[in-house]
Write a protein that binds this DNA or RNA. Sequence first.
DNA 1: ACCTGAACACCGTTCAAGT
DNA 2: ACCTGAACACCGTTCAAGT
Lengths: 200, 200
Amino acid sequence: MSSETGRTRPYHHGDLRRALIDTALQILQEEQNWEFTLRELARRAGVSHAAPYKHFADKRELLAEVAAVGFRALRQAMEAAAAGHEGEPEELLAVLGETYVAFALESPARFRLMFGPVRDDEPPVPALQSAAGEAFEALRAAGAGSGGGEVDTRTLAAWSLVHGLATLLIDRRIPGAPSDTAGTRALVARIIRASVRAPA
Amino acid sequence: MSSETGRTRPYHHGDLRRALIDTALQILQEEQNWEFTLRELARRAGVSHAAPYKHFADKRELLAEVAAVGFRALRQAMEAAAAGHEGEPEELLAVLGETYVAFALESPARFRLMFGPVRDDEPPVPALQSAAGEAFEALRAAGAGSGGGEVDTRTLAAWSLVHGLATLLIDRRIPGAPSDTAGTRALVARIIRASVRAPA
DNA sequence: ACCTGAACACCGTTCAAGT
DNA sequence: ACCTGAACACCGTTCAAGT
């Protein structure tokens, strides 16, 4: 949605790096699976399948950069949702949780890519590390506010709850779960609001 | 661990179907990634790469059968843990949750395979459907026991919590999380026990 | 400086042919 | 009845060569 698909070659001499990331995000919005092919991506971007290697070391690094863009979008969505809830900590945490799950449901493939398994034999991609860390900070700031480097129990419980709920929902793992958007939203609100009152 | 690796060809005329599933589970225990190759599996089982196609329609079906075995193991682990906690519903739910997370940490690749994304354009594999459903039943029986076909809020919240916690832990997504087994176990116990007291 | 085309070592899957 | 070997259409990645 952020670049025109009508023109045959909108760039080709412009910023291919950015174009590849944009095209990848478009594919993620269309498909439910994040495992698209590097060659398909190059095809859709209008370049040869070898061209991406001039901008990314390998497919993994490209996917990591796309995931980083996703984490920045998640952080922005949470910060926007947090505006106007400074005084009520429990309500803030609930709203952030609903935003988190809504973000996953809105674009499941993007969410899956962002939280795709990271093998520890692979070198970390700095952009992804920092973007993910900052998104997490937005959640933690709403938690009990312990301030230190360690995660407090309440924040981690809230994060686990919304992450698990999002994952189970987009993977259709919950038997009898509503299939429509409104019903799903209501279910999410019910679960989050029932849990947010828990003692830390 | 369930079949001998020392002998060069322990089957080849026996039950190749079972041998392939066993070998797959062995690979899952060794690796942290569940995306092993069908050709590698055949190689390790001592057969040609075309042999599996006499027992499974395709790779997806093989993986689904392996996942089904995993769900049966999860259900057994939960039922074993549930023994002796009939009278105390909150303690029972906490113990089941700890068992769930421990199961994931024990064999991350197996857990990832079990909960790998299911595309809805793919035909469902009956064995996987029922095995997953029965594992979920073990959890639900410990919940508020609404009995009906719909999942009650408390059970779903508990499931989401432990599923999210397990996922974030095995993917190393939690900054500052303990890296040793004892520390992780303590963290899990703390989070679950703090949340299980929540109102439904 | 950036991109292409051919090439390499792999995949999943199919199928005729072997025992 | 069960398995093999060659084959097909793909991958990710590399690299000399083109502009």
